[in-house]
Design a binder for these strands. Structure first.
Length: 211
DNA sequence: TTCCTGACGATTG
DNA sequence: ACAATCGCCAGGA
């Protein structure tokens, strides 16, 4: 059993909403140059963090009973995402496929967007997109997915970019902190810059048989 | 339908 | 070693 440590230190801040918004999406109607989508520089366009009217959902996924993951087709056909969660109400076929794959990822291991994409004959971007809409966390362990660089990556909509690179301390945001904590409990640790310590924790891609 | 945006990854400068 | 581009493909508007 998992004894949940109290995560009082987690999710203390309302977090800066900056990154998730379209940072510098220069409305490229004429596509000669695409502004790359990395929210590297924090633009202060969105400066209305004061409200955050989302007390309905506790910030910590860890303090919430794990949602059940429907496996029967009949249940899936009627399933709708809870209000407030990202994405459309209906879970798409691709997403079910991805979630099915994810639940075979062994505890104590991590995978990458690229690896999942490869296994599904899709693209890493599509995988990331589907993961961010995962309504079944942490039952469907999207927290075990990191970037191919072994960087911790994102969680629950937040993405901590390579700010770790600058030698500066890697300051994970609230949600990413939870991802780190979840993984830590599973025996997967990251260094001070947000990179996976032990490459041995990488998944070999083989599903676990549940006999 | 068409267009455009992403929790990415590999290449190129 | 970095930073900026390009390609990918699934979803949403």
């Amino acid at each position: 059993m998992v004894t949940l440590v109290s995560l009082d230190s987690l999710a203390p801040t309302p977090s800066t909403p900056a990154a998730s918004s379209q940072a510098g999406k220069a409305r490229a109607s004429v596509v000669s140059k695409k502004p790359y989508d990395r929210p590297a520089a924090v633009t202060k366009e969105t400066d209305a963090p004061t409200e955050h009217s989302v007390p309905s959902q506790p910030l910590s996924i860890l303090n919430r009973p794990p949602p059940s993951f429907p496996t029967a087709a009949s249940e899936r056909s009627t399933y709708t995402r809870p209000e407030g969660s990202a994405g459309k109400a209906k879970v798409t076929a691709f997403q079910w496929k991805l979630y099915d794959l994810l639940v075979t990822l062994p505890l104590g291991k991590v995978s990458t967007y690229g690896q999942l994409a490869s296994l599904l004959s899709s693209s890493p971007r599509a995988v990331g997109s589907a993961l961010r809409h995962n309504p079944f966390a942490p039952t469907v362990p999207c927290h075990r997915i990191i970037a191919s660089t072994l960087f911790i990556g994102g969680f629950n909509g937040e993405w901590k970019n390579g700010e770790a690179k600058n030698g500066g301390a890697f300051a994970a945001g609230g949600m990413v902190s939870e991802k780190l904590e979840l993984l830590k409990r599973e025996g997967v640790e990251f260094d001070g810059k947000g990179f996976l310590k032990d490459k041995g924790c990488l998944w070999d891609g083989k599903a676990v048989k549940e006999e």
